[in-house]
Design a protein around this nucleic acid. Structure first.
Lengths: 219, 219
DNA sequence: TATAATTTTTAGATTAGTCTAAAAATATTT
DNA sequence: AAATATTTTTAGACTAATCTAAAAATTATA
């Protein structure tokens, strides 16, 4: 058996590794989990004993094949539940995350697959994040950050890097939501802010905080 | 905050009191929770400290108003999720119970109410058990056990008293499912078995184990 | 390459939930 | 009502997950 806490650590390690692309260190995990470094050391020993991670003292950790299987299964369940909450129950994209954090821990051999069929085999969650298949595979998105686009580039808003409620509510307020059309009009090197045309109608100046956390699919 | 374990104890106490109708004793709780009497004593002290139950040493416990509110909220969530699992995801009535045991612990101010609307405000779960409203009220069913019916009585199968997977699967196998029409043809005092006419078509002899655990709505 | 700074681990506690074994209280039987 | 049986509680211990404070290892700096 694996506890909810153990699952959350594996997911955190998976996400940090996805972002940084190397062996994950203790402090990064404690920051992600909001615990102390000492708690992380205790937990990674346990996870190593259970063969979910490879661990060398002072050298950080990597997921084993089994650890990665658990982590991607959690991501699949999380994103699937988010689709359910938004599409079927009318939650907004900033509300569904916290509920999905709970629902992803429901233990069942086939609940997520039934949900998949019921929801029409969705490929992306409401934030534009891809949903892994049963084997844990998913296509990395063909996209770039708004802040990395060049002058005149056009595209469509497909997702976010930062998932905090505050950030998502801000995006709602300024109208930069999923599927919005974006053209880069001007880039201000001074503070990395970007002026864009939104949905062919209005002009909008967005801060670096926004441009560095919003994914655009070019084309 | 209340833990999942604490919630399960409150639900157990609620259900035992519903059945027995008096102050609930330690051994009954330990039997229901599959723990030892010592563990129960520890836990009821905690629950009494938190004002979920009234507790007098050696005298058993009763739920406080707040404890009853928590318990009926759990019952509401449990039965609502069962409707979702059966109606929307195609689970059978014997499969949905265990999953609902997990789902009932999801913490959310309004998830159950949104589910309620999404499912069309159901009044009963797939086993025929009534779903409490937001205030925890629900009509006791107008029904009796098959084993208590008289010769010639007619009615419709509306629920079960025993919820074990084995029992529900047995009912499926013999065709005595929710909404089946029932007429009492013969009662064998010797072993309390009952011969019934099922759905106006076939005759069926059911054991006392079945007749004493199946609810029929007369009429 | 020593020294300083940072990161990680160890040591020792704490809380929730559980257990077994024994003691205490209550209930039943003779 | 005394003896016996049953139920309940206490005492003491264990595991999972967490913490603070201090020690050890690694990395950066002078």
């Amino acid at each position: 058996m694996i506890s909810q806490t153990e699952e959350n650590y594996l997911k955190a390690i998976y996400k940090i590794n996805e972002r940084e692309g190397k062996s994950v260190n203790t402090n990064a995990i404690s920051a992600a989990m909001n615990t102390t470094a000492a708690s992380v050391t205790d937990m990674i020993k346990r996870l190593a004993d259970k063969d979910f991670i490879n661990y060398e003292k002072y050298r950080g950790v990597t997921l084993t094949t089994e650890g990665e299987r658990v982590a991607t299964a959690l991501v699949r369940k999380h994103r699937m539940w988010e689709v359910f909450l938004c599409d079927k129950l009318g939650y907004s994209w900033d509300e569904c995350h916290d509920l999905a954090e709970q629902l992803e821990h429901i233990q069942s051999a086939d609940l997520v697959d039934r949900l998949d069929s019921f929801l029409g085999k969705p490929k992306f969650d409401p934030h534009g994040d891809p949903i892994p298949d049963r084997e844990g595979n998913y296509a990395k998105r063909q996209q770039m950050l708004l802040g990395e686009m060049a002058l005149g580039d056009k595209g469509v808003m497909v997702g976010v890097q930062e998932h905090s409620t505050a950030f998502l509510q801000h995006l709602d307020r300024i109208g930069l939501v999923l599927a919005a059309k974006v053209v880069v009009l001007e880039i201000f090197e001074f503070d990395k802010s970007v002026k864009i045309k939104l949905n062919d109608t209005m002009e909008l100046l967005v801060s670096s905080k926004v441009s560095e956390n919003v994914f655009i699919k070019i084309g």
